[in-house]
């Protein structure tokens, strides 16, 4: 079995790939997907530490993160569909109309 260090490295690399995706891309749907990737990196680390300390609270917390992620995706995609209907694009850079 690999140690806790390996899981720390793997999840921080995955999290930073998610951050890079959010910064690089302009498609709103892919932005949401990158947020999902970041949540998954955190879930992996939660599970690794839960196994490390033999405490099931971490895995319960992962379950609740999944619940929140599913709700977030449902509402986020509904908002994106609405934006597409009004502007014919899911480019996030056109959503700066509130900017002064």
């Amino acid at each position: 079995m690999p140690g806790i260090d390996h899981y720390l490295w793997l999840s921080s690399i995955l999290f930073c790939i998610g951050v890079a995706g959010v910064l690089l891309r302009r498609n709103g749907i892919i932005l949401l997907m990158c947020i999902e990737l970041m949540l998954n990196a955190v879930n992996l680390l939660f599970t690794a530490f839960s196994t490390y300390y033999q405490d099931s609270a971490g895995q319960i917390f992962v379950f609740f993160i999944m619940v929140v992620a599913a709700a977030e995706v449902a509402v986020g995609l509904a908002i994106l569909v609405m934006i597409y209907r009004n502007t014919k694009s899911v480019d996030v850079s056109i959503m700066d109309k509130l900017k002064f």
């Binding site: 720390l8 921080s12 951050v19």
Partner: peptide, 27 residues
């Protein structure tokens, strides 16, 4: 994003963790 990753990884290298492998549990 690369600077964030280097910061995280450097912090993990600084702190010496338990090198033992994860225990096999049934939780």
């Amino acid at each position: 994003a690369g600077i964030l990753m280097i910061t995280l990884l450097a912090a993990f290298i600084q702190n010496q963790h338990d090198p033992a492998s994860l225990p096999l549990t049934d939780i």
